[in-house]
Design a protein around this nucleic acid. Structure first.
Length: 270
DNA sequence: AGTCGCGCCTGGCGGC
DNA sequence: TGCCGCCAGGCGCGAC
């Protein structure tokens, strides 16, 4: 499940292989992803140069003069850089073929991912309402505290809302709330400013750390399986329901919030 | 406006 | 060993 660190690791992995390179072909074997892959992409990128490879939230943006190719990895998507001519396997839905003999291949068994097009000068609907980048200065305690006032929704669901802040998925929401010592069920509007200060710091730290760990797989990005992995043994709570809290030894509690697993320490998180 | 629940999809797993 | 049913979850969307 790619979260922001995995997406950023992926972006860094493909960037050196396609930046400033020209597109030779765009192959869509399966257009039924989260949304149909739009036809307009082909004419807008064929023979054109990649100007930059950027990221907004969990979208990777491959930028051209005419607009941006938007790639979202959904739940099970991954991008790999492969030599041109590599036979596609099951679930290899889209190839961006470059003139340098390499291709970027989207593999996505569950097809929750998407490949979209944002024309130059237009903001795609799916990017229009996104909140600040968690690692930017725009994401700070004043912003988050203000945004949380009068909100009854649980703090965990609040920080997972993309209009509030992008890129905080289930794993890192669980982890950062544990590190900040906040009960994930607490209404967002009732969390003090002091606690938000701590939470902002922990969110940034946990994401930054995960990016540095993901970076260790970058060396082998070309023709490796390219999947930035989690270091499960480094997670404090996620996937550890019923096990002992690494801080106090209490039994970690597992509940469901909005159809997602929440794991927390009833003693450390108040 | 805010909140809630649905559904998209397939691999993997537990149970029998 | 095989089959069945369930679960995982990012996230937009419709309903209230």
């Amino acid at each position: 499940m790619p979260e922001l660190p995995e997406v950023e690791t992926t972006r860094r992995g493909i960037e050196p292989h396609i930046d400033q390179q020209h597109v030779a072909d765009f192959v869509v074997r399966e257009r039924r992803l989260r949304w149909p892959v739009p036809d307009e992409i082909f004419n807008n990128i064929l023979e054109k140069r990649v100007n930059s490879v950027e990221r907004r939230g969990k979208y990777i943006l491959v930028r051209f003069d005419a607009g941006d190719l938007m790639v979202h990895l959904g739940m099970s998507g991954s991008l790999r850089v492969l030599p041109q001519g590599t036979e596609p396997a099951k679930h290899d839905h889209v190839d961006l073929v470059m003139k340098n003999g390499l291709l970027v291949r989207l593999t996505d068994p569950r097809r929750f991912g998407s490949v979209l097009w944002q024309p130059k000068g237009e903001m795609h609907k799916l990017l229009a309402k996104l909140g600040p980048e968690p690692l930017s200065d725009d994401f700070n305690v004043d912003y988050l505290f203000k945004a949380s006032r009068n909100r009854s929704v649980a703090i965990k669901q609040f920080i997972m809302t993309s209009e509030v802040v992008v890129g905080v998925g289930n794993i890192y929401a669980n982890e950062s709330l544990f590190k900040a010592g906040i009960d994930p069920r607490k209404p967002a509007g009732k969390v003090s400013k002091q606690r938000y200060e701590r939470l902002v710091i922990e969110i940034k730290q946990v994401l930054e750390y995960a990016i540095t760990r993901g970076g260790t797989t970058l060396r082998d990005f070309l023709s490796s399986d390219g999947k930035p992995g989690y270091f499960a043994q480094e997670l404090s709570v996620y996937g550890r329901g019923g096990e002992a809290c690494k801080s106090c030894g209490s039994n970690l509690k597992e509940i469901r919030q909005g159809q997602r697993a929440t794991v927390f320490c009833p003693r450390c998180q108040r």
